[in-house]
Amino acid sequence: RMRTAFTSTQLLELEREFSSNMYLSRLRRIEIATYLNLSEKQVKIWFQNRRVKHKK
């Protein structure tokens, strides 16, 4: 599987969303994925990984 290289714009938006809410509803995940031109799965995994990073 290929590793996703997020653009700086995508990362900025993902981080902004994360700062306001660490957990996404499915609807919000779809909205963000569509807006950032990513798959729902990519957004889901990014949030999972970001939560782990946040815990450390």
Score class of each variant (00 low, 15 high):
1 R>F: 15
1 R>V: 11
1 R>L: 12
2 M>P: 09
2 M>G: 11
2 M>I: 10
2 M>T: 13
2 M>F: 10
2 M>W: 10
2 M>R: 08
3 R>N: 15
3 R>T: 15
3 R>D: 15
3 R>K: 14
3 R>Q: 12
3 R>H: 14
3 R>S: 15
4 T>P: 12
4 T>V: 13
4 T>Q: 12
4 T>S: 13
4 T>C: 14
4 T>E: 15
4 T>Y: 14
4 T>K: 11
4 T>F: 08
4 T>G: 12
5 A>F: 12
5 A>W: 09
5 A>Q: 10
5 A>V: 11
5 A>Y: 10
5 A>M: 11
5 A>I: 10
6 F>G: 03
6 F>K: 04
6 F>D: 08
6 F>P: 10
6 F>L: 14
7 T>G: 04
7 T>N: 11
7 T>W: 02
7 T>E: 06
7 T>I: 03
7 T>D: 10
7 T>Q: 04
7 T>R: 03
7 T>M: 03
8 S>V: 09
8 S>N: 07
8 S>W: 07
8 S>L: 11
8 S>G: 09
8 S>A: 11
8 S>E: 14
9 T>G: 12
9 T>C: 12
9 T>L: 11
9 T>S: 13
9 T>E: 15
9 T>Q: 13
9 T>F: 08
10 Q>Y: 03
10 Q>T: 07
10 Q>V: 08
10 Q>C: 04
11 L>V: 10
11 L>Q: 11
11 L>I: 10
11 L>W: 06
11 L>D: 11
12 L>K: 10
12 L>V: 12
12 L>C: 13
12 L>A: 14
12 L>N: 13
12 L>W: 09
12 L>Y: 12
13 E>P: 04
13 E>T: 07
13 E>A: 08
13 E>N: 07
13 E>S: 06
13 E>H: 08
14 L>K: 00
14 L>C: 00
14 L>I: 00
14 L>G: 02
14 L>F: 03
14 L>W: 00
15 E>C: 03
15 E>A: 04
15 E>D: 05
15 E>S: 02
16 R>I: 06
16 R>G: 07
16 R>N: 10
16 R>V: 07
16 R>S: 10
17 E>M: 00
17 E>T: 02
17 E>P: 04
17 E>V: 03
17 E>S: 04
17 E>D: 00
17 E>Q: 06
17 E>W: 01
18 F>E: 00
18 F>R: 00
18 F>M: 02
18 F>D: 03
18 F>P: 01
18 F>N: 00
18 F>K: 01
18 F>Y: 12
18 F>S: 01
19 S>E: 14
19 S>M: 12
19 S>G: 10
19 S>T: 13
19 S>A: 13
19 S>F: 07
19 S>N: 13
19 S>W: 06
19 S>C: 11
20 S>P: 01
20 S>N: 11
20 S>Y: 11
20 S>L: 12
20 S>T: 13
21 N>G: 06
21 N>D: 10
21 N>P: 00
21 N>H: 02
21 N>K: 02
21 N>V: 03
21 N>A: 04
21 N>I: 04
21 N>L: 04
21 N>T: 03
21 N>W: 02
22 M>Q: 12
22 M>I: 07
22 M>K: 08
22 M>A: 11
22 M>D: 13
23 Y>I: 12
23 Y>H: 12
23 Y>W: 06
23 Y>D: 08
23 Y>C: 08
23 Y>F: 08
23 Y>A: 07
24 L>M: 05
24 L>F: 01
24 L>T: 05
24 L>Q: 00
24 L>V: 07
25 S>T: 08
25 S>H: 05
25 S>V: 07
25 S>Q: 00
25 S>F: 03
26 R>Q: 15
26 R>G: 15
26 R>Y: 15
26 R>W: 15
26 R>D: 15
26 R>M: 15
26 R>V: 15
26 R>T: 15
27 L>V: 07
27 L>C: 07
27 L>G: 07
27 L>N: 07
27 L>R: 07
27 L>I: 10
27 L>D: 08
28 R>G: 01
28 R>E: 00
28 R>V: 01
28 R>N: 01
28 R>K: 06
28 R>T: 05
29 R>S: 07
29 R>Q: 13
29 R>V: 07
29 R>I: 08
30 I>C: 09
30 I>L: 10
30 I>D: 04
30 I>P: 05
30 I>S: 07
30 I>M: 07
30 I>Q: 06
30 I>H: 00
30 I>N: 06
31 E>V: 03
31 E>A: 05
31 E>W: 05
31 E>C: 01
31 E>Y: 02
31 E>H: 05
31 E>P: 05
31 E>S: 05
32 I>P: 06
32 I>L: 08
32 I>D: 00
32 I>Y: 02
32 I>C: 04
33 A>S: 12
33 A>L: 00
33 A>H: 04
33 A>I: 03
33 A>T: 00
33 A>F: 01
34 T>S: 07
34 T>I: 06
34 T>W: 01
34 T>M: 07
34 T>D: 06
34 T>R: 06
34 T>P: 01
35 Y>N: 07
35 Y>I: 09
35 Y>P: 01
35 Y>K: 09
35 Y>Q: 10
35 Y>D: 07
35 Y>C: 08
36 L>C: 09
36 L>N: 07
36 L>H: 04
36 L>A: 02
36 L>E: 01
36 L>P: 01
37 N>T: 08
37 N>F: 06
37 N>A: 07
37 N>K: 09
37 N>R: 09
38 L>N: 01
38 L>Y: 00
38 L>A: 07
39 S>C: 05
39 S>R: 05
39 S>T: 13
39 S>D: 10
40 E>R: 02
40 E>D: 03
40 E>Q: 04
40 E>M: 06
40 E>V: 05
40 E>A: 04
40 E>N: 00
41 K>T: 14
41 K>N: 15
41 K>F: 15
41 K>Q: 15
41 K>G: 14
41 K>E: 15
42 Q>W: 01
42 Q>H: 07
42 Q>G: 05
42 Q>N: 07
42 Q>M: 11
42 Q>V: 10
42 Q>P: 00
42 Q>K: 06
43 V>G: 01
43 V>L: 03
43 V>N: 03
43 V>Y: 01
43 V>R: 02
44 K>Q: 14
44 K>R: 10
44 K>M: 15
44 K>A: 15
44 K>P: 02
44 K>E: 14
44 K>T: 14
45 I>M: 14
45 I>F: 09
45 I>T: 12
45 I>A: 13
45 I>H: 12
45 I>S: 13
45 I>G: 12
46 W>N: 04
46 W>Y: 09
46 W>K: 05
46 W>D: 00
47 F>K: 00
47 F>P: 02
47 F>N: 04
47 F>Q: 00
47 F>L: 04
47 F>V: 00
47 F>R: 04
47 F>D: 01
47 F>I: 02
48 Q>R: 06
48 Q>L: 10
48 Q>I: 10
48 Q>C: 06
49 N>F: 10
49 N>G: 10
49 N>V: 08
49 N>K: 11
49 N>A: 09
49 N>Y: 07
50 R>V: 03
50 R>N: 06
50 R>H: 03
50 R>F: 06
50 R>P: 03
50 R>L: 04
51 R>H: 10
51 R>A: 14
51 R>D: 03
51 R>Y: 11
52 V>M: 11
52 V>R: 12
52 V>A: 14
52 V>G: 14
52 V>I: 12
52 V>H: 11
53 K>T: 11
53 K>C: 11
53 K>I: 13
53 K>A: 14
53 K>F: 09
53 K>Q: 15
54 H>F: 09
54 H>R: 05
54 H>Y: 11
55 K>R: 09
55 K>H: 13
55 K>T: 10
55 K>F: 13
55 K>V: 11
56 K>M: 10
